[in-house]
Design a protein around this nucleic acid. Structure first.
Lengths: 213, 213
DNA sequence: TGTTAAGCGGAGGGAGCCTCCGTATCTTCA
DNA sequence: TGAAGATACGGAGGCTCCCTCCGCTTAACA
């Protein structure tokens, strides 16, 4: 520490490999079995000893966190790619949709992430930052192109997205969220606005999603 | 089952009492220690044997669920009370704020609920229904009084609320959510408006033209 | 007050958590 | 290339918590 080793050893190849294996295994096992899945099962699937798993990830949360960071990375990269898409609005929409699919394929994992978020606000901050930037770049492009209104922040959008996905596992949640996303994106478009707002006693203007109570 | 016992015994007083005690203890223990808190600790705090706990709540999820149902009940009752408040908009705002506080005092518990939601879509449906009705009654009153727009469904509102709270445990989350709630409520008001909106890009949000196809 | 169904507590077998350390493998340097 | 030393590996084992099972206790009913 004080003795700054200017000559650090190259990390061992097997250590790097094992770490990667554990992460991959963890993703699968948690997705299938939820956040309480046995760590011994993870180690087994990764083909390593339980001790190895614990050396790399001293606590269950550390493991969750590492898996999660990877996911965020991926979404971030996806945004990077979409930046080159022709239609900026469509690009944003696609990214949002990818997010939903992402959640959908990870039943158990998302519960694990909820747990992780609770205990690591540093992680929360990191991923918020990362995802906000991802959304932001897509959003800005659409705004700059004059195709979207400019008064919505990436944070707001992200929060809305996450919030909508949060309620998943209800019967038709996924299609519902996708629908809402479309509405959302439509709402963000530059348009001759001023949708007719229904007067209190009036009948519903929207045919869809008639709330019954 | 088929043999309908027309002569059911009154439930034993101690059983009722113990059930209640366990629920109360669980609320405290989970709130403090998160969803993985020891069930034995719950039993201990409740002053009952572990066997008793398991008889009433065969699985950890059953216990979560029962605790959660209570909470929903309480929020529902709160809405009932607020119906008598003078200002309908304020009543709605208060209810929303109570929700936030609710979440705030239950760090660990909310993680538990996330888990429960995952595994019991019946519960999710029930609570959505219950809370939707709670919001709905408050919302309707405000709309009927001509103080709020009528094109927002209680479901939408609930989803937004839950979504916003979902991100909690970030540093200033609570005040942030409260702020956003106020904005939200303001947005719901019947007003003569059209506030000037502008954010990032220097361009003024041009309200006109550009009929998007 | 006696009968009996219902409820109670906690012992105990099992599963998973996590630590610890002897062994195996990799990197470095001569 | 081979030896030395650092680093990582595996899994036995101690421990905690889970959950079932059953003999004892108690409340409801007649």
């Amino acid at each position: 520490m004080d003795d700054h080793a200017d000559h650090t050893r190259k990390p061992r190849a097997d250590a790097v490999r094992n770490r990667e294996r554990v992460l991959e295994a963890a993703k699968v096992v948690f997705s299938a079995g939820g956040p309480e899945a046995s760590l011994e099962a993870v180690a087994k699937r990764a083909g390593v000893g339980i001790g190895t798993l614990y050396r790399h990830f001293p606590t269950r949360e550390d493991l969750f966190e590492a898996v999660y960071r990877r996911e965020v990375e991926q979404l971030s990269e996806l945004a990077e790619q979409l930046k080159n898409a022709r239609d900026p609005v469509d690009a944003l929409r696609r990214w949002l949709r990818s997010n939903v699919e992402f959640v959908a394929t990870k039943k158990g994992m998302s519960a694990a992430l909820a747990l992780t978020f609770q205990s690591s606000s540093e992680l929360a901050a990191y991923s918020m930052d990362r995802l906000t930037k991802a959304i932001g770049s897509l959003l800005d492009r659409a705004v700059a192109a004059g195709q979207m209104r400019g008064d919505i922040s990436p944070e707001d959008l992200l929060r809305a997205l996450v919030g909508m996905c949060y309620m998943h596992d209800q019967p038709g949640w996924q299609s519902s969220v996708l629908r809402m996303l479309d509405v959302f994106v439509d709402g963000l478009r530059m348009q001759p606005v001023m949708k007719a707002r229904v007067r209190s006693t009036g009948k519903p203007a929207k045919p869809a999603a008639k709330p019954k109570r």
